[in-house]
Design a protein around this nucleic acid. Structure first.
Lengths: 240, 240
DNA sequence: AACTTATCGATAGCGATCTATCGATAAAAG
DNA sequence: CTTTTATCGATAGATCGCTATCGATAAGTT
């Protein structure tokens, strides 16, 4: 009984699939109907071998000298990820991040449909965000069970994350997309994926720091800090 | 001249550092002044060896039988990531995601200070979001050069991403935190970190799909779909 | 003061991910 | 019809990240 989260599929490969999907849909919109690994790898900056292996994971089969049929390939990736049939999701936490996710129009591309938002703040309850009404958190359990909602999006402050996750699990939700800065404790049959913006920012700032040191010390290819350009007197408003 | 983005530091390790940082600050708030790898690993669900190696990367040195001094460790991580001295950043794209980032109060913990937001929509320009005025995009270049802003946060729609990135590079920005669903083409001396929510969602839905198949087929440990509970007639408002 | 124990730090081994090579295939060209 | 060429698919090799083991160290205990 292996506890493999992805059961044999490399997580890095799964994470790349949406990149392929986006490119494929762009190509399809331009009228193309076949594409090769070489073409994809050139566009995305990977090696063609890696692309071929990633795509093979989805079960797609290509033709030598031609490549893959784009519609079939899109279908194969969406089937693999479970993005073909749209699934309902509940969002908990109608703060600014929750608002942003409620307003994002691209989730149906990913097979995700946010059907309702919940909060415990009376000031927010009843308000409508992007056509979706914010409901009191007390109604989540009942609605989730009746509608068989399996996906929960967690956009509450860190302190409120664990109780909200407990409620989700109690309500039959089996997958939590967690934007809260907290480690969630859930049963093993519940899937949690953390969105950690701090991790992403750490990589960015570390790389910037390294790059600045390099350009400042030896490498003179480009200026480390951009010098002043035009001496216009453009000033920031005093927002502080 | 290696083109290593992180120059010898494993990216997964860098991405874990903020997790340690958050825990350490929690412990510090509770009055503790030392901590061991064992303690950290128990809390975060890693192995103690991995934690020790990650921390060693920052140059910190611990004492046997005791562990690490929490203030020194916090300092070491922040120094390593460049989060000790706060850096200014510009945000481009005052949509709902831009609003959410402007309103997030935790960025100064990460050494980030969003000083201004820019947009090209006249309807948005001049409005104030969380105390920060939205400025016309035309003013970015001048202000960025005068203020020596090195970090840009990109929260525009996919089509607008590349021109906005070009403007950032032209304005002396050297690190782009890219939330737009687009592959940016920038000079090699500019650092780009993509925030790819679709990748995260792909992992979540794939794992959920696997988990449902397992519970549906052989494993009877937990119900795949939660059965209806109380037969209250609680219905969603007709928001569609 | 000697012993026990928890921890660090280093080295070595393992597993996963990425990359290179090679034969097979089929379209296109001669 | 044969040759050339671009591509796929599979196998093998290399690289990277994770984990296990072991000696060293110092606090606590007897």
């Amino acid at each position: 009984m292996p506890a493999d989260p992805l059961k044999g599929y490399p997580e890095p490969s799964v994470r790349r699939l949406p990149l392929y999907l986006r490119l494929l849909k762009q190509l399809q919109a331009k009228g193309r109907d076949v594409v090769s690994c070489t073409h994809i790898s050139d566009d995305l900056g990977f090696t063609s071998i890696q692309v071929r292996k990633d795509l093979a994971m989805t079960g797609i089969v290509g033709r030598p000298k031609i490549g893959y049929e784009i519609p079939s390939l899109i279908q194969a990736i969406e089937d693999f990820l479970g993005w073909n049939n749209v699934k309902d999701a509940f969002l908990v936490g109608a703060g600014s991040l929750g608002h942003a996710l409620l307003g994002y129009p691209g989730f149906d591309e990913y097979g995700l449909n946010i059907v309702a938002a919940f909060d415990n703040d009376p000031a927010k309850i009843g308000r409508t965000v992007h056509g979706k009404e914010i409901l009191p958190i007390e109604r989540l359990e009942n609605l989730a069970r009746r509608m068989h909602v399996l996906i929960g999006i967690l956009t509450v402050p860190g302190e409120a994350a664990q109780p909200a996750a407990d409620l989700m699990v109690r309500s039959g939700i089996r997958a939590i997309w967690n934007y809260a800065p907290a480690k969630l404790d859930v049963p093993e049959f519940v899937v949690v994926e953390d969105v950690r913006l701090a991790a992403s920012l750490a990589v960015l700032t570390k790389r910037l720091k390294e790059a600045m040191h390099h350009t400042a010390n030896n490498d003179a290819s480009q200026p480390a800090a951009a010098p002043d350009h035009r001496p216009d007197d453009d000033t920031l408003p005093t927002t502080a």
